[in-house]
Design a protein around this nucleic acid. Structure first.
Lengths: 221, 221
DNA sequence: TATTCTAGTTGATTTGAATCAAAACATAAC
DNA sequence: GTTATGTTTTGATTCAAATCAACTAGAATA
C-alpha cells in the first residue's frame, strides 16, 4: 500500500538529482497552488498532505514516511493541489520532474518503476475510498493502525510499538471522523485490550483481533 | 477532473494499437484478480469500476465515460484490483501496456501526457476522499451531479439534461451512502426546484443553487 | 393480459457519530 | 517552578443517515 521506494531505488534517484532539503516540524514542503517542478522522495521524517476546503477546513489525504514519493498529484496541472507539511523534522530529496522524464526515456526500468509508484498511489486511494465509504469509526481506526504498523515493519521498526506523529484531529480528518470519535475509538480498543494507548504511543497487544476489527463490518452487524 | 483523452489523443493511441473490444451492458471488461496486460481507452459507452469487500459488498470507485482510460490501478501489481463493468453497451480500445511504455520512450509528449493522466486520476481520487470524508448526503449528491454534468458538457452533450446509467444503489456505493439516502437527497433537491428527476433522467433547473448546495457545508451549519 | 421481478420512493424508528461542554493532561513559554 | 496553550479524554445531548418496512412504478417474462 505505501507508495514506497527501497533504499537502493532512492539511491539511484539520488544519483540522478541529489539536491536535498530539510523541513522543520510544522514547515511546508510545498503549498497548494504553488508551481510544480519537482517530486520529493522522503529520506527521513514524516509528513502529511492535505487539501483545503472552500471554507477553510482541511482534509488530510495522506501520511507519508521514509521512501515515499510526494507531488504526484501536481503532475497533471503543474500546480500543487495540496499542502505538504512536516509532522516531524524531515529531509527530502528533490527530483526535478522534467529531468526524471528525460532520464526515464533512457532507463526503461526506471520509467516502469515510476509508473508502478503512481499506480500504487491510485490503489492506495481506492483503499481509502473504501474505508471512508463503508467502514464505521472503529473499523477505520483499526485499518489505519494496521496500515501504519505494516509500514513501520517494512522500514525495520517494530510493528507492535510506535509513536504517532499526528494529532487526533489529523487522524480524524484522514479517516473522515471528528477527533472525539477518534479518541473514543482508541479508548474502546484499549478497553478491549487489543491495543495500549499512552498519548501518542501505541502498543498493539493483539494483532489478530485488531485485524478482525477491520475485517468484518457487515458480517457481525 | 475526469481522466480524459481528447479524440485526437485517442486517435494517436489508436494508431499505436487499435485492437477494439465491445462489451455488452452488464458485461465485464476485466475482473479483480485477473492478470493485467492492457489499459483500455473508452471509445463509447459507460462503465463502472468497483472493488469487492471481504464480505461480498462492493464499493464503486468510479464511473467512466468516453475518452477515459481504465486499468491504471493494475500497473502496480500487474493484477487488476477492481472489476470494470459496462453499464451500457460500450466499446474500448485495448492498449497493451508494455507497448505503450516502449513507444512512449520515443515520443516524450506521449509519455508526459500519460503521466498527466495518471496524476489526474490521483487528483480525482483525492477529491472523492474529500467528498466522502467531510460532506453530507445532499452535498455529495450535488457534487456528483455537477461532476457528471460537466463531463457531459465536455463531450458535447447537454449539461442540463442527461440520463443516469447507474442505479441509486451504485450511486450510493460511490458516494458512501445507502440507496434510500440517495433517493431522499434526489427528492429534496427536486422539492427545492433545483433539479427535476424522472427516474433515470435528470434535468438541472438551477445550476447556481446546485453549486451552492455543494459548496458551503460548514458555512451554513 | 396477467405475473414476476427489479428499481425506486417514502415513512417510522434506531443508531452511530457529531456536537456541545467540561475537565485532565502535556508541552512550550516565561 | 509557574503560567499559558494546545491536545486529549470523557460525558450528555442532538442529529443525520442507516435500517426496517411498506408500497409504487416499470421492465421483463410467461
Amino acid at each position: 500500500m505505501p507508495v514506497g521506494l527501497n533504499e537502493n531505488e532512492i539511491h539511484v534517484l539520488g544519483e540522478v538529482v541529489s539536491h536535498k532539503r530539510k523541513i522543520q516540524r510544522g514547515g511546508y514542503l510545498h503549498r497548494a497552488g504553488s508551481k510544480f517542478q519537482s517530486l520529493y522522495a522522503i529520506r527521513s521524517g514524516f509528513l502529511k498532505t492535505c487539501i483545503l476546503e472552500q471554507d477553510g477546513r482541511q482534509q488530510v489525504t495522506g501520511f507519508h514516511m521514509t521512501g515515499e514519493l510526494l507531488g504526484l498529484d501536481a503532475i497533471s496541472t503543474e500546480i500543487h493541489t495540496c499542502d505538504a507539511v512536516a509532522l516531524e523534522d524531515s529531509e527530502v530529496c528533490e527530483i526535478p520532474f522534467a529531468k526524471l522524464e528525460e532520464i526515464s526515456r533512457t532507463i526503461p526500468s526506471l520509467m516502469h518503476h515510476f509508473h508502478k509508484i503512481m499506480s500504487r498511489e491510485i490503489v492506495r486511494d481506492h483503499g481509502v475510498m473504501l474505508l471512508l465509504g463503508s467502514m464505521k469509526a472503529e473499523e477505520r481506526l483499526a485499518s489505519f493502525l494496521l496500515n501504519l504498523s505494516r509500514r513501520f515493519l517494512i522500514r525495520g521498526y517494530s510493528e507492535y510499538n510506535f509513536n504517532l506523529r499526528m494529532t487526533r484531529e489529523e487522524i480524524g480528518s484522514y479517516l473522515g471522523l471528528k477527533l472525539e470519535t477518534v479518541s473514543r475509538a482508541f479508548s474502546k480498543l484499549q478497553d478491549e485490550n487489543i491495543i495500549r494507548v499512552d498519548n501518542k504511543h501505541i502498543q498493539i497487544n493483539d494483532m489478530t483481533r485488531l485485524r478482525m476489527k477491520m475485517g468484518n463490518s457487515s458480517c457481525i452487524t
